[in-house]
Design a protein around this nucleic acid. Structure first.
Lengths: 222, 222
DNA sequence: CGGAAAGGTGAATCAGTTGTCATATTGTTG
DNA sequence: CAACAATATGACAACTGATTCACCTTTCCG
Protein backbone atom coordinates (compact mmCIF):
# COMPACT_ATOMS: atom_id res chain seq x y z
CA UNK A 1 0.00 0.00 0.00
CA UNK A 2 2.51 2.61 1.05
CA UNK A 3 5.63 2.98 -0.99
CA UNK A 4 8.37 1.20 0.84
CA UNK A 5 11.78 2.39 -0.01
CA UNK A 6 13.09 -1.15 -0.08
CA UNK A 7 10.50 -2.51 -2.46
CA UNK A 8 12.45 -1.53 -5.46
CA UNK A 9 15.57 -3.30 -4.34
CA UNK A 10 13.61 -6.40 -3.47
CA UNK A 11 15.13 -8.37 -6.33
CA UNK A 12 18.30 -10.11 -5.21
CA UNK A 13 21.60 -8.76 -6.44
CA UNK A 14 20.88 -7.38 -9.89
CA UNK A 15 24.48 -6.31 -10.40
CA UNK A 16 26.81 -8.48 -12.44
CA UNK A 17 24.79 -11.64 -12.53
CA UNK A 18 26.62 -14.32 -14.48
CA UNK A 19 23.65 -15.87 -16.23
CA UNK A 20 21.93 -13.69 -18.77
CA UNK A 21 18.73 -12.54 -17.16
CA UNK A 22 16.93 -12.56 -20.47
CA UNK A 23 15.41 -9.61 -22.23
CA UNK A 24 14.66 -7.65 -19.11
CA UNK A 25 14.79 -8.48 -15.46
CA UNK A 26 11.72 -7.16 -13.70
CA UNK A 27 12.24 -3.77 -12.12
CA UNK A 28 9.09 -3.68 -10.12
CA UNK A 29 7.42 -5.85 -7.52
CA UNK A 30 4.59 -6.44 -9.95
CA UNK A 31 7.00 -7.49 -12.66
CA UNK A 32 8.77 -9.89 -10.34
CA UNK A 33 5.46 -11.44 -9.40
CA UNK A 34 4.42 -11.87 -13.01
CA UNK A 35 7.75 -13.40 -13.93
CA UNK A 36 7.44 -15.84 -11.06
CA UNK A 37 3.89 -16.74 -12.11
CA UNK A 38 5.10 -17.51 -15.61
CA UNK A 39 7.95 -19.63 -14.31
CA UNK A 40 5.63 -21.63 -12.12
CA UNK A 41 3.17 -22.05 -14.96
CA UNK A 42 5.97 -23.31 -17.17
CA UNK A 43 6.91 -25.88 -14.56
CA UNK A 44 3.37 -27.20 -14.43
CA UNK A 45 2.86 -27.10 -18.15
CA UNK A 46 6.15 -28.75 -19.07
CA UNK A 47 5.50 -31.22 -16.30
CA UNK A 48 2.20 -32.42 -17.66
CA UNK A 49 2.36 -31.76 -21.40
CA UNK A 50 6.09 -32.09 -21.82
CA UNK A 51 8.44 -29.56 -23.28
CA UNK A 52 7.65 -30.11 -26.93
CA UNK A 53 3.93 -30.48 -26.75
CA UNK A 54 3.67 -27.43 -24.54
CA UNK A 55 3.23 -24.17 -26.40
CA UNK A 56 4.04 -20.70 -25.15
CA UNK A 57 0.32 -20.12 -25.30
CA UNK A 58 -0.25 -23.00 -22.88
CA UNK A 59 2.16 -21.47 -20.45
CA UNK A 60 0.75 -17.99 -20.65
CA UNK A 61 -2.77 -19.29 -20.37
CA UNK A 62 -1.83 -21.19 -17.23
CA UNK A 63 -0.15 -18.07 -15.88
CA UNK A 64 -3.09 -15.88 -16.75
CA UNK A 65 -1.16 -13.44 -18.90
CA UNK A 66 -1.09 -12.60 -22.59
CA UNK A 67 1.34 -14.27 -24.94
CA UNK A 68 3.35 -11.14 -25.44
CA UNK A 69 4.03 -10.84 -21.72
CA UNK A 70 6.09 -13.99 -21.88
CA UNK A 71 8.68 -12.27 -24.02
CA UNK A 72 9.01 -9.43 -21.55
CA UNK A 73 10.86 -11.80 -19.25
CA UNK A 74 12.15 -14.70 -21.32
CA UNK A 75 13.87 -14.84 -24.67
CA UNK A 76 12.01 -17.98 -25.67
CA UNK A 77 11.03 -21.49 -24.78
CA UNK A 78 14.56 -22.76 -24.36
CA UNK A 79 15.56 -20.01 -22.02
CA UNK A 80 12.71 -20.55 -19.64
CA UNK A 81 13.60 -24.23 -19.55
CA UNK A 82 17.17 -23.42 -18.61
CA UNK A 83 15.96 -21.11 -15.89
CA UNK A 84 13.60 -23.77 -14.63
CA UNK A 85 16.20 -26.51 -14.43
CA UNK A 86 18.59 -24.26 -12.58
CA UNK A 87 15.85 -23.28 -10.19
CA UNK A 88 14.56 -26.76 -9.58
CA UNK A 89 18.04 -28.20 -9.16
CA UNK A 90 18.75 -25.66 -6.52
CA UNK A 91 15.61 -26.58 -4.67
CA UNK A 92 16.14 -30.35 -4.64
CA UNK A 93 19.70 -30.01 -3.47
CA UNK A 94 18.69 -27.63 -0.70
CA UNK A 95 15.87 -29.92 0.33
CA UNK A 96 17.97 -33.06 0.41
CA UNK A 97 20.82 -31.33 2.18
CA UNK A 98 18.42 -30.23 4.89
CA UNK A 99 17.05 -33.74 5.26
CA UNK A 100 20.37 -35.41 5.93
CA UNK A 101 22.18 -32.90 8.13
CA UNK A 102 21.26 -34.79 11.25
CA UNK A 103 22.36 -38.19 10.00
CA UNK A 104 24.76 -39.95 12.33
CA UNK A 105 26.88 -41.64 9.70
CA UNK A 106 27.05 -42.14 5.96
CA UNK A 107 24.80 -45.18 5.85
CA UNK A 108 22.13 -43.28 7.69
CA UNK A 109 22.62 -40.32 5.39
CA UNK A 110 22.14 -42.57 2.39
CA UNK A 111 18.97 -43.96 3.86
CA UNK A 112 17.55 -40.57 4.70
CA UNK A 113 18.68 -39.15 1.40
CA UNK A 114 17.07 -41.89 -0.66
CA UNK A 115 13.82 -41.72 1.25
CA UNK A 116 13.74 -37.94 0.98
CA UNK A 117 14.45 -38.10 -2.71
CA UNK A 118 11.67 -40.58 -3.37
CA UNK A 119 9.28 -38.49 -1.35
CA UNK A 120 10.33 -35.29 -3.07
CA UNK A 121 9.91 -36.81 -6.50
CA UNK A 122 6.50 -38.07 -5.57
CA UNK A 123 5.49 -34.59 -4.48
CA UNK A 124 7.16 -32.82 -7.39
CA UNK A 125 6.74 -35.09 -10.38
CA UNK A 126 7.52 -32.26 -12.76
CA UNK A 127 11.13 -32.32 -11.67
CA UNK A 128 11.82 -35.61 -13.37
CA UNK A 129 10.19 -34.78 -16.64
CA UNK A 130 11.53 -31.28 -16.98
CA UNK A 131 15.01 -32.44 -16.17
CA UNK A 132 15.05 -35.41 -18.48
CA UNK A 133 13.61 -33.50 -21.37
CA UNK A 134 16.09 -30.72 -20.84
CA UNK A 135 18.78 -33.25 -21.63
CA UNK A 136 17.89 -33.15 -25.29
CA UNK A 137 17.16 -29.48 -25.55
CA UNK A 138 20.40 -28.30 -24.04
CA UNK A 139 22.65 -31.04 -22.77
CA UNK A 140 24.84 -28.62 -20.86
CA UNK A 141 22.11 -27.71 -18.37
CA UNK A 142 21.50 -31.37 -17.76
CA UNK A 143 25.15 -32.13 -17.17
CA UNK A 144 25.42 -29.10 -14.99
CA UNK A 145 22.61 -30.39 -12.84
CA UNK A 146 24.13 -33.80 -12.27
CA UNK A 147 27.64 -32.54 -11.97
CA UNK A 148 26.59 -30.07 -9.31
CA UNK A 149 24.71 -32.81 -7.57
CA UNK A 150 27.66 -35.15 -7.97
CA UNK A 151 30.16 -32.66 -6.58
CA UNK A 152 28.23 -32.36 -3.36
CA UNK A 153 27.77 -36.10 -3.17
CA UNK A 154 31.44 -36.72 -3.77
CA UNK A 155 32.44 -34.36 -1.00
CA UNK A 156 30.27 -36.29 1.40
CA UNK A 157 31.65 -39.66 0.33
CA UNK A 158 35.19 -38.37 0.66
CA UNK A 159 34.40 -37.19 4.18
CA UNK A 160 32.91 -40.54 5.01
CA UNK A 161 35.98 -42.32 3.66
CA UNK A 162 38.20 -40.13 5.79
CA UNK A 163 36.13 -40.87 8.85
CA UNK A 164 36.32 -44.56 8.10
CA UNK A 165 32.59 -44.87 7.65
CA UNK A 166 32.86 -46.38 4.20
CA UNK A 167 35.43 -48.51 2.46
CA UNK A 168 38.07 -46.86 0.31
CA UNK A 169 37.21 -46.97 -3.35
CA UNK A 170 36.58 -44.91 -6.44
CA UNK A 171 34.08 -42.43 -5.09
CA UNK A 172 33.57 -40.62 -8.40
CA UNK A 173 32.31 -43.79 -9.99
CA UNK A 174 30.28 -44.62 -6.93
CA UNK A 175 28.56 -41.26 -7.07
CA UNK A 176 27.28 -41.88 -10.57
CA UNK A 177 26.18 -45.35 -9.67
CA UNK A 178 24.29 -44.05 -6.67
CA UNK A 179 22.66 -41.22 -8.57
CA UNK A 180 21.57 -43.72 -11.21
CA UNK A 181 20.03 -45.97 -8.61
CA UNK A 182 18.03 -43.19 -7.04
CA UNK A 183 16.90 -41.97 -10.38
CA UNK A 184 15.54 -45.29 -11.55
CA UNK A 185 14.05 -46.21 -8.22
CA UNK A 186 12.33 -42.85 -8.18
CA UNK A 187 10.98 -43.26 -11.67
CA UNK A 188 9.71 -46.75 -11.05
CA UNK A 189 8.48 -46.55 -7.46
CA UNK A 190 7.63 -42.89 -6.91
CA UNK A 191 6.32 -41.87 -10.32
CA UNK A 192 5.05 -44.97 -12.08
CA UNK A 193 3.69 -47.25 -9.39
CA UNK A 194 3.80 -46.93 -5.66
CA UNK A 195 3.38 -50.65 -5.23
CA UNK A 196 6.38 -50.99 -2.96
CA UNK A 197 6.74 -48.89 0.17
CA UNK A 198 9.57 -46.43 0.40
CA UNK A 199 10.65 -48.17 3.58
CA UNK A 200 11.04 -51.44 1.76
CA UNK A 201 13.08 -49.78 -0.97
CA UNK A 202 15.31 -48.00 1.48
CA UNK A 203 15.80 -51.19 3.45
CA UNK A 204 16.78 -53.09 0.33
CA UNK A 205 19.33 -50.51 -0.72
CA UNK A 206 20.62 -50.11 2.79
CA UNK A 207 21.21 -53.84 2.90
CA UNK A 208 23.13 -53.59 -0.35
CA UNK A 209 25.33 -50.89 1.15
CA UNK A 210 25.90 -52.82 4.35
CA UNK A 211 26.43 -56.29 2.97
CA UNK A 212 26.73 -56.15 -0.77
CA UNK A 213 24.88 -58.51 -3.01
CA UNK A 214 26.85 -61.71 -2.63
CA UNK A 215 26.92 -63.89 0.44
CA UNK A 216 29.25 -63.01 3.29
CA UNK A 217 32.89 -64.03 3.25
CA UNK A 218 36.01 -62.00 2.57
CA UNK A 219 37.16 -64.19 -0.29
CA UNK A 220 34.57 -65.50 -2.60
CA UNK A 221 36.87 -66.22 -5.50
CA UNK A 222 40.61 -66.64 -5.86
CA UNK B 1 -5.25 -37.90 -35.95
CA UNK B 2 -4.99 -39.80 -39.21
CA UNK B 3 -8.26 -41.46 -38.55
CA UNK B 4 -10.45 -39.81 -41.14
CA UNK B 5 -8.22 -40.15 -44.15
CA UNK B 6 -8.38 -43.82 -44.95
CA UNK B 7 -12.15 -43.89 -45.28
CA UNK B 8 -11.99 -42.36 -48.70
CA UNK B 9 -10.12 -45.15 -50.38
CA UNK B 10 -12.63 -47.95 -50.34
CA UNK B 11 -10.07 -50.62 -49.66
CA UNK B 12 -12.17 -53.36 -48.16
CA UNK B 13 -10.96 -53.04 -44.59
CA UNK B 14 -8.23 -55.57 -43.86
CA UNK B 15 -9.60 -57.34 -40.85
CA UNK B 16 -8.14 -56.25 -37.51
CA UNK B 17 -6.22 -53.28 -38.79
CA UNK B 18 -5.56 -52.12 -35.25
CA UNK B 19 -2.15 -50.51 -35.27
CA UNK B 20 0.59 -53.10 -35.39
CA UNK B 21 1.85 -53.69 -38.90
CA UNK B 22 1.65 -50.10 -40.07
CA UNK B 23 0.18 -49.12 -43.38
CA UNK B 24 1.59 -52.06 -45.24
CA UNK B 25 4.21 -54.62 -44.51
CA UNK B 26 6.55 -55.06 -47.48
CA UNK B 27 5.55 -57.89 -49.77
CA UNK B 28 8.65 -57.97 -51.83
CA UNK B 29 12.35 -58.30 -51.25
CA UNK B 30 12.81 -54.81 -52.59
CA UNK B 31 10.20 -53.43 -50.23
CA UNK B 32 11.76 -55.14 -47.26
CA UNK B 33 15.11 -53.67 -48.18
CA UNK B 34 13.71 -50.16 -48.48
CA UNK B 35 11.88 -50.45 -45.21
CA UNK B 36 15.05 -51.57 -43.51
CA UNK B 37 16.98 -48.68 -45.04
CA UNK B 38 14.44 -46.22 -43.70
CA UNK B 39 14.55 -47.79 -40.25
CA UNK B 40 18.31 -47.60 -40.15
CA UNK B 41 18.25 -44.03 -41.39
CA UNK B 42 15.79 -43.16 -38.65
CA UNK B 43 18.09 -44.65 -36.06
CA UNK B 44 20.99 -42.55 -37.25
CA UNK B 45 18.95 -39.41 -37.67
CA UNK B 46 17.17 -39.64 -34.33
CA UNK B 47 20.47 -40.54 -32.76
CA UNK B 48 22.26 -37.44 -33.91
CA UNK B 49 19.55 -34.84 -34.33
CA UNK B 50 17.14 -36.15 -31.76
CA UNK B 51 13.54 -37.12 -32.29
CA UNK B 52 12.05 -33.67 -32.40
CA UNK B 53 14.67 -31.89 -34.42
CA UNK B 54 14.71 -34.69 -36.95
CA UNK B 55 12.24 -34.27 -39.77
CA UNK B 56 10.78 -36.98 -41.94
CA UNK B 57 12.68 -35.32 -44.74
CA UNK B 58 15.94 -35.83 -42.86
CA UNK B 59 15.19 -39.50 -42.52
CA UNK B 60 14.16 -40.02 -46.12
CA UNK B 61 17.15 -38.04 -47.35
CA UNK B 62 19.45 -40.20 -45.27
CA UNK B 63 17.73 -43.28 -46.61
CA UNK B 64 17.87 -42.03 -50.18
CA UNK B 65 14.14 -42.23 -50.83
CA UNK B 66 11.37 -39.74 -51.42
CA UNK B 67 9.26 -38.41 -48.59
CA UNK B 68 6.19 -40.25 -49.69
CA UNK B 69 7.96 -43.57 -49.54
CA UNK B 70 8.19 -43.21 -45.80
CA UNK B 71 4.44 -43.52 -45.49
CA UNK B 72 4.38 -46.70 -47.49
CA UNK B 73 5.89 -48.47 -44.48
CA UNK B 74 5.22 -46.35 -41.43
CA UNK B 75 2.12 -44.56 -40.25
CA UNK B 76 4.14 -41.59 -39.03
CA UNK B 77 7.01 -40.38 -36.98
CA UNK B 78 5.77 -41.88 -33.73
CA UNK B 79 5.29 -45.29 -35.19
CA UNK B 80 8.77 -45.56 -36.57
CA UNK B 81 10.09 -44.60 -33.15
CA UNK B 82 8.10 -47.36 -31.55
CA UNK B 83 9.40 -49.82 -34.08
CA UNK B 84 12.92 -48.64 -33.47
CA UNK B 85 12.77 -48.97 -29.71
CA UNK B 86 11.36 -52.45 -29.97
CA UNK B 87 14.05 -53.39 -32.43
CA UNK B 88 16.93 -51.89 -30.51
CA UNK B 89 15.73 -53.34 -27.23
CA UNK B 90 15.68 -56.76 -28.77
CA UNK B 91 19.23 -56.33 -29.97
CA UNK B 92 20.73 -55.15 -26.69
CA UNK B 93 19.09 -57.92 -24.75
CA UNK B 94 20.29 -60.52 -27.21
CA UNK B 95 23.78 -59.09 -27.15
CA UNK B 96 24.03 -58.94 -23.39
CA UNK B 97 22.54 -62.38 -22.97
CA UNK B 98 25.17 -63.78 -25.28
CA UNK B 99 27.94 -62.03 -23.37
CA UNK B 100 27.08 -63.52 -19.99
CA UNK B 101 26.10 -67.09 -20.83
CA UNK B 102 29.52 -68.36 -19.89
CA UNK B 103 29.70 -66.58 -16.54
CA UNK B 104 30.48 -68.86 -13.65
CA UNK B 105 28.35 -67.18 -11.04
CA UNK B 106 26.15 -64.13 -10.58
CA UNK B 107 28.94 -61.79 -9.58
CA UNK B 108 30.84 -62.68 -12.69
CA UNK B 109 27.69 -62.26 -14.75
CA UNK B 110 27.21 -58.79 -13.31
CA UNK B 111 30.76 -57.89 -14.16
CA UNK B 112 30.54 -59.19 -17.68
CA UNK B 113 27.12 -57.68 -18.16
CA UNK B 114 28.15 -54.22 -17.01
CA UNK B 115 31.27 -54.23 -19.15
CA UNK B 116 29.34 -55.45 -22.17
CA UNK B 117 26.69 -52.82 -21.64
CA UNK B 118 29.20 -50.00 -21.42
CA UNK B 119 30.93 -51.25 -24.53
CA UNK B 120 27.67 -51.65 -26.41
CA UNK B 121 26.54 -48.17 -25.51
CA UNK B 122 29.84 -46.76 -26.62
CA UNK B 123 29.47 -48.48 -29.96
CA UNK B 124 25.77 -47.68 -30.36
CA UNK B 125 25.28 -44.26 -28.85
CA UNK B 126 21.96 -43.85 -30.64
CA UNK B 127 20.43 -46.42 -28.34
CA UNK B 128 20.54 -44.14 -25.36
CA UNK B 129 19.12 -41.12 -27.06
CA UNK B 130 16.37 -42.86 -28.96
CA UNK B 131 15.30 -44.71 -25.88
CA UNK B 132 15.29 -41.74 -23.54
CA UNK B 133 13.45 -39.54 -25.95
CA UNK B 134 10.90 -42.24 -26.58
CA UNK B 135 9.98 -41.91 -22.94
CA UNK B 136 8.23 -38.64 -23.59
CA UNK B 137 6.73 -39.51 -26.92
CA UNK B 138 5.06 -42.69 -25.79
CA UNK B 139 5.80 -43.72 -22.25
CA UNK B 140 4.48 -47.21 -22.78
CA UNK B 141 7.26 -48.20 -25.18
CA UNK B 142 9.79 -46.98 -22.70
CA UNK B 143 8.25 -48.90 -19.83
CA UNK B 144 7.96 -51.92 -22.03
CA UNK B 145 11.66 -51.77 -22.74
CA UNK B 146 12.72 -51.63 -19.12
CA UNK B 147 10.11 -54.05 -17.94
CA UNK B 148 11.20 -56.58 -20.51
CA UNK B 149 14.78 -56.00 -19.50
CA UNK B 150 13.81 -56.20 -15.86
CA UNK B 151 11.92 -59.46 -16.25
CA UNK B 152 14.98 -61.17 -17.63
CA UNK B 153 17.18 -59.65 -14.98
CA UNK B 154 14.80 -60.70 -12.22
CA UNK B 155 14.75 -64.27 -13.43
CA UNK B 156 18.53 -64.37 -13.23
CA UNK B 157 18.63 -62.89 -9.76
CA UNK B 158 16.01 -65.34 -8.58
CA UNK B 159 18.12 -68.18 -9.95
CA UNK B 160 21.17 -66.82 -8.22
CA UNK B 161 19.28 -66.55 -4.95
CA UNK B 162 18.17 -70.12 -5.27
CA UNK B 163 21.70 -71.24 -5.93
CA UNK B 164 22.88 -69.31 -2.91
CA UNK B 165 25.07 -67.03 -4.98
CA UNK B 166 23.49 -63.87 -3.66
CA UNK B 167 21.83 -62.92 -0.40
CA UNK B 168 18.09 -63.12 -0.12
CA UNK B 169 16.40 -59.80 -0.59
CA UNK B 170 13.90 -57.88 -2.65
CA UNK B 171 15.09 -58.72 -6.12
CA UNK B 172 12.51 -56.57 -7.90
CA UNK B 173 13.82 -53.47 -6.20
CA UNK B 174 17.37 -54.58 -6.78
CA UNK B 175 16.73 -54.95 -10.48
CA UNK B 176 15.66 -51.35 -10.83
CA UNK B 177 18.58 -50.17 -8.77
CA UNK B 178 20.98 -52.14 -10.93
CA UNK B 179 19.47 -50.94 -14.19
CA UNK B 180 19.71 -47.39 -12.92
CA UNK B 181 23.35 -47.80 -12.08
CA UNK B 182 24.23 -49.15 -15.48
CA UNK B 183 22.28 -46.46 -17.16
CA UNK B 184 24.00 -43.61 -15.41
CA UNK B 185 27.43 -45.15 -15.57
CA UNK B 186 26.91 -45.64 -19.28
CA UNK B 187 25.78 -42.10 -19.84
CA UNK B 188 28.64 -40.62 -17.87
CA UNK B 189 31.52 -42.92 -18.75
CA UNK B 190 30.62 -44.37 -22.14
CA UNK B 191 28.85 -41.45 -23.79
CA UNK B 192 30.04 -38.25 -22.15
CA UNK B 193 33.66 -38.83 -21.17
CA UNK B 194 35.73 -41.95 -21.35
CA UNK B 195 38.06 -40.64 -18.67
CA UNK B 196 37.76 -43.75 -16.52
CA UNK B 197 38.44 -47.20 -17.92
CA UNK B 198 35.64 -49.69 -18.09
CA UNK B 199 37.78 -52.03 -16.02
CA UNK B 200 37.98 -49.51 -13.22
CA UNK B 201 34.23 -49.00 -13.30
CA UNK B 202 33.50 -52.69 -13.30
CA UNK B 203 35.96 -53.22 -10.45
CA UNK B 204 34.34 -50.49 -8.39
CA UNK B 205 30.86 -51.91 -8.84
CA UNK B 206 32.04 -55.43 -8.32
CA UNK B 207 33.51 -54.36 -5.03
CA UNK B 208 30.20 -52.82 -4.07
CA UNK B 209 28.46 -56.10 -4.81
CA UNK B 210 31.02 -58.12 -2.91
CA UNK B 211 31.50 -55.96 0.14
CA UNK B 212 28.95 -53.22 0.17
CA UNK B 213 29.80 -49.63 0.86
CA UNK B 214 30.37 -49.64 4.59
CA UNK B 215 33.25 -51.25 6.41
CA UNK B 216 33.05 -54.92 7.25
CA UNK B 217 31.18 -56.11 10.28
CA UNK B 218 27.68 -57.49 10.66
CA UNK B 219 26.61 -54.87 13.17
CA UNK B 220 27.81 -51.38 12.68
CA UNK B 221 25.45 -49.49 14.97
CA UNK B 222 22.48 -50.35 17.18
C1' DC C 1 4.75 -60.93 -73.19
C1' DG C 2 1.39 -58.19 -70.70
C1' DG C 3 -0.95 -56.32 -67.19
C1' DA C 4 -1.72 -55.93 -62.37
C1' DA C 5 0.18 -55.24 -57.96
C1' DA C 6 3.79 -53.27 -55.38
C1' DG C 7 6.94 -49.73 -54.91
C1' DG C 8 8.36 -44.94 -55.43
C1' DT C 9 7.97 -39.79 -56.28
C1' DG C 10 7.86 -34.85 -54.62
C1' DA C 11 5.13 -30.72 -54.98
C1' DA C 12 1.17 -29.09 -52.61
C1' DT C 13 -1.52 -28.88 -48.60
C1' DC C 14 -2.46 -27.87 -44.05
C1' DA C 15 -2.22 -27.43 -39.03
C1' DG C 16 0.06 -25.51 -35.51
C1' DT C 17 4.00 -22.53 -33.63
C1' DT C 18 6.78 -18.83 -32.44
C1' DG C 19 7.96 -14.25 -31.85
C1' DT C 20 6.59 -9.22 -33.12
C1' DC C 21 4.36 -4.92 -32.63
C1' DA C 22 1.29 -1.10 -32.20
C1' DT C 23 -1.41 -0.02 -28.55
C1' DA C 24 -3.45 0.18 -23.82
C1' DT C 25 -2.92 0.03 -18.87
C1' DT C 26 -0.64 0.57 -14.55
C1' DG C 27 2.57 2.45 -11.37
C1' DT C 28 6.19 5.93 -10.04
C1' DT C 29 8.09 10.29 -9.28
C1' DG C 30 9.07 15.24 -9.33
C1' DC D 1 -1.39 15.64 -11.24
C1' DA D 2 1.37 15.36 -15.35
C1' DA D 3 4.93 13.06 -17.55
C1' DC D 4 7.37 9.04 -17.95
C1' DA D 5 8.78 4.26 -17.55
C1' DA D 6 7.53 -0.29 -16.87
C1' DT D 7 4.07 -3.81 -17.87
C1' DA D 8 0.62 -6.03 -20.29
C1' DT D 9 -2.25 -7.09 -24.36
C1' DG D 10 -3.66 -10.03 -28.31
C1' DA D 11 -4.03 -10.18 -33.17
C1' DC D 12 -1.13 -11.71 -36.75
C1' DA D 13 2.91 -12.30 -40.01
C1' DA D 14 6.16 -15.63 -41.01
C1' DC D 15 7.60 -20.06 -40.70
C1' DT D 16 8.07 -25.01 -39.84
C1' DG D 17 7.33 -29.57 -40.78
C1' DA D 18 4.08 -33.63 -41.13
C1' DT D 19 1.10 -35.86 -44.24
C1' DT D 20 -1.44 -36.45 -48.65
C1' DC D 21 -2.19 -37.51 -53.40
C1' DA D 22 -2.20 -38.03 -58.30
C1' DC D 23 0.88 -40.02 -61.08
C1' DC D 24 5.07 -42.63 -62.65
C1' DT D 25 8.35 -47.02 -62.51
C1' DT D 26 9.63 -51.56 -61.34
C1' DT D 27 8.77 -56.28 -60.31
C1' DC D 28 6.21 -60.44 -60.39
C1' DC D 29 3.94 -64.25 -62.44
C1' DG D 30 0.54 -66.82 -65.41
Amino acid sequence: MTRTASLKTATPAPAGDAAQPGPGAPKTARGARTRARILKAAEDTFGTLGYHRAGISDITRAAGVAQGTFYTYFAGKEEILRELVRDMGHQVRAHLAAEIVDAGDRLQAEEKGLRAFLQYLFEHPSLYRVLQEAQFVDESIYREYYEAFGRGYLRMLADATRKGEIRAGNNEVRVWALMGMSNFLGLRYALWDRDVSFDEIVATISDLFRNGLTLEGPEKNP
